[in-house]
Design a protein around this nucleic acid. Sequence first.
DNA 1: ATGCGTTGTATCATCGATGATGCAACGCCG
DNA 2: CGGCGTTGCATCATCGATGATACAACGCAT
Lengths: 236, 236
Amino acid sequence: MDGADDRTDGRARAVVARDDVEFDVRDARLLRAVDRTGSVAGASSALGRSRARDLARIETLEAAFGALVERRRGGSGGGGSRLTPAAVDLLERFERLSVAVAATARVPETVLRGPVASVDGELAVVSTPVGEVCGLHQGVDAGDEVQVRVGADAVTVLLSGADPAAGDSSARNRLRGTTVDVDRGGTVATVGVDVDGTVFRALLTDDSTVRLGLQKGREAAISWKATATRVAGDRP
Amino acid sequence: MDGADDRTDGRARAVVARDDVEFDVRDARLLRAVDRTGSVAGASSALGRSRARDLARIETLEAAFGALVERRRGGSGGGGSRLTPAAVDLLERFERLSVAVAATARVPETVLRGPVASVDGELAVVSTPVGEVCGLHQGVDAGDEVQVRVGADAVTVLLSGADPAAGDSSARNRLRGTTVDVDRGGTVATVGVDVDGTVFRALLTDDSTVRLGLQKGREAAISWKATATRVAGDRP
DNA sequence: ATGCGTTGTATCATCGATGATGCAACGCCG
DNA sequence: CGGCGTTGCATCATCGATGATACAACGCAT
């Protein structure tokens, strides 16, 4: 149902951009190889690439991002190259971004459908089968038929006895339901909570599932942040 | 600091894959154009592409994803093409994925650094300046120096009076701090909460900031889920 | 002084992706 | 029956990305 086919999986490629030049995986590999081998020539041959091309690439990157590789011609060993602190920062940022988007592409999701009731700036409220839900959007209009996506890593599960009013938290979306399955995966579990017929998927640590006493059939409450829910057009 | 340069921004390209063939933006545009114009020929000329090429692309996509475009040769209007339900599902899934990864690429982040204390399956606990933090990882080992990333859309802010023990929620990471800035952006605000010198960024609706009475200087508590925090290598 | 391995730079070759073109087959419609 | 616009299919052309190669400049070590 609804794109949850097995065999098909979502992926994402990260890129950090500045001034129309994009730093991507390939560039990250190059910088890492330079760091490892101590020279651009060494990096290129280690990666099986053209040294001239890599040098040129480094220059276009530096035109946008500033100095990345300190190159030294002549001297002991014939010369060599080192990453600048800026390059290390860039690599680390790319790594974080990569890991983050790869994770959101891999995580289960629950999707609600309905018309958008109103739009206020970057926020849209959508009428869904479980009530009005608020989320971030990008260019939808009131009346549009849309899908609302909530990542399983964004929904937290509460003891069903917990206060559902929740005036004291910034996570306003709160619903009650009954857990329909708990799939323990060793250390991380995904649990399904049925709310009025639509089941929400939540990603929890195994720890949390036992601490909360989650079991099939038990009542549970879920909550998630408006700023963690995305509304996507249905077919633009 | 730490990659938070302005001028440079993170991006992500979504892809849904099956059997080594990847459905990307370009394919999405093609299918949408077919849906809009009613024919592959119309879609190709609308997009300024080669019709033969587009037809071939559709066939390789169908080899992996199943029937996507019902093509009819001859008949009224000379023939035409329609999307199958599977194609609509695929488009919708792609749209959700696109929106989701684009958002996580755009959202502010807070990063903690330190050595990983232990690893248990997909979970790693890292010793950071604010204490031990637990997050999802992918191939790091105990002792590695890593960065821990928490997206601003994943941290929820609580009234400072709220119970920090929190045995009743699946969000275990809880900290107290003082809010150092509230940047209202019209409908969505990002607030900074200082905890022992590291400031956490949280994305909240403006509503929530007033409901919680957030102001610079006030105490605040934050919490986030282990399954929403990613640990990334420092330099693999 | 000579050798060495690197950087700096220019040029050519290759390969894959993509668009352009041409023509046959199809089937409804007037 | 002929016209029409589409699909089906093959082939050529073009362009950009990338690797390969060549040679000069450099500066430390021997």
